[in-house]
């Protein structure tokens, strides 16, 4: 059985939907996410669908339901990785996905969630202190 990985970055959870998801996996995906959400008290979830080549109504429903379940647990959900092809086929299929919020990329998703990337520490190269002792 494939392992669904949920990554945590601060208060944000990241989930990548694997290609060729089937019913069983879809269920474990939703379970894994909700479990992590409860555990970490995350208030933001980013779901990445960029590995999906084909999005049919089943997949659209999995995405919708996962997003809905998460927001019921009071987290904002954003979908990233919608390709032009996926967008057009979804609309032609008749899946409006109205209650789903999407973002163009991860940066835009973080932006929408109200988070920004801030660099606080200077990085220290391990060789610096050996070769150039005066440099910090």
């Amino acid at each position: 059985m494939k392992y669904i990985q949920v990554l945590k970055l601060g208060p944000i959870l990241f989930l990548t939907i694997p290609e060729n998801l089937n019913d069983a996996l879809a269920q474990s995906l939703e379970e894994a996410l909700l479990e992590q959400q409860a555990l970490t008290k995350a208030d933001a979830i980013v779901i990445d669908i960029s590995s999906l080549e084909i999005i049919d109504s089943f997949m659209a429903r999995v995405i919708s339901e996962t997003a809905n379940a998460s927001s019921l647990m009071d987290a904002k959900v954003i979908i990233v990785g919608m390709s032009p092809v996926a967008t057009i086929t979804l609309l032609e299929l008749g899946m409006r996905m109205e209650h789903i919020e999407t973002a163009l990329d991860l940066e835009a998703a973080l932006d929408k969630l109200g988070y920004a990337l801030v660099k606080t520490k200077k990085t220290i190269h391990p060789l610096d202190s050996l070769t150039e002792p005066n440099k910090k």
């Binding site: 084909i54 049919d56 086929t89």
Partner: peptide
């Protein structure tokens, strides 16, 4: 586009 349209339709109907 058309490759994906066809594959998606096939996915729907096969399901």
């Amino acid at each position: 586009m058309n490759k994906t349209r066809l594959a998606t339709a096939v996915s729907e109907l096969a399901r």
